[in-house]
């Protein structure tokens, strides 16, 4: 199936700004789905609110466009009701880790088989450039005109500590790497977190003098390095990319099946 067949073309042009990284990430995601030869009806794209969350409107899968921060809660209900589905949850940094932070860590703790994609552009785009829990210190935002004093979460460390059994990071520059990681994340049985660094030239780039989309994409390249690479060894301040966690742990829906089996046995005995 061609990638364009996964899109609801009637919804285009999309609402992302010129130079936004989110469309590129959507492209990587659709190619991953295409390469996995998944059926449209077996995919539920659940999202919250924000620029990233609009993805669920653009893709021709089952789509559940919910409330700000609550995508993982609704996705959990869907997955437990129909465990055979591929539930994919694209989220922005605010959606996933500010308002949705509690659901994020608890979904990871349960290790429920959902693929969470954090499209991290370090800013709230839709509402006009407010800082997020992933902005970090010293960033200019509409709600931080004197620069931020808030520390940021490291999504990889947070997801790992919370119990996610697949944790990875890539960027909107590394499109093929993103596709490859997303394929593995979707296939992984358990809670998968893929952070993909995105760029918001409109709000973040302009305020923080990172230039236009092209120069921001350059930064994805120059500020990151693959795990195990010489570049990272030489320059450990670079942001590592790759798969950090890929472990086999009991998955929540499968464990719940055991609860049911036990309860049914108790009932009959």
């Amino acid at each position: 199936m061609a990638v364009k067949d996964y899109l609801r073309q009637r919804f285009f042009p999309h609402m992302w700004c010129p130079g936004c990284g989110h469309g590129t990430i959507l492209n990587s995601l659709l190619r991953a789905i295409e390469e996995l030869e998944l059926e449209k009806k077996d995919i539920v794209m659940t999202s919250g609110i924000g620029c990233s969350a609009r993805i669920s409107g653009y893709v021709d899968f089952h789509s559940l466009h919910t409330m700000h921060g609550r995508a993982l809660a609704c996705a959990t209900g869907v997955k437990l009701s129909r465990p055979h589905l591929n539930v994919i949850v694209p989220m922005g940094d605010g959606d996933a880790l500010a308002i949705g932070g509690n659901h994020f860590i608890h979904a990871a703790r349960r290790n429920i088989d959902i693929t969470a994609i954090v499209m991290n552009n370090r800013i709230y785009g839709m509402t006009g450039g407010q800082f997020s829990p992933l902005s970090g210190v010293g960033i200019k935002a509409t709600t931080a005109p004197y620069t931020t004093i808030d520390n940021n979460f490291d999504v990889v460390e947070l997801a790992t500590a919370a119990g996610a059994s697949f944790v990875a990071r890539s960027t909107a520059y590394h499109v093929k790497e993103s596709t490859d990681i997303l394929k593995q994340a979707i296939q992984h049985k358990g809670f998968s977190v893929v952070e993909i660094l995105s760029q918001c030239p409109t709000h973040y780039g302009r305020k923080n003098k990172e230039g236009d989309a092209v120069s921001m994409l350059e930064l994805h390249k120059t500020n990151t390095a693959k795990i195990g690479s010489k570049a990272l060894e030489k320059n450990p301040v670079l942001t590592p990319r790759g798969i950090f966690v890929d472990t086999d742990k009991p998955e929540y829906c499968a464990e719940y099946e055991k609860v049911i089996a036990f309860a049914m046995k108790e009932k009959t005995s």
Partner: peptide, 14 residues
Amino acid sequence: IASIGFCLGASMAG
């Protein structure tokens, strides 16, 4: 918040 979210997901799943 999560509890009612689970329910809405389940209801949408039928």
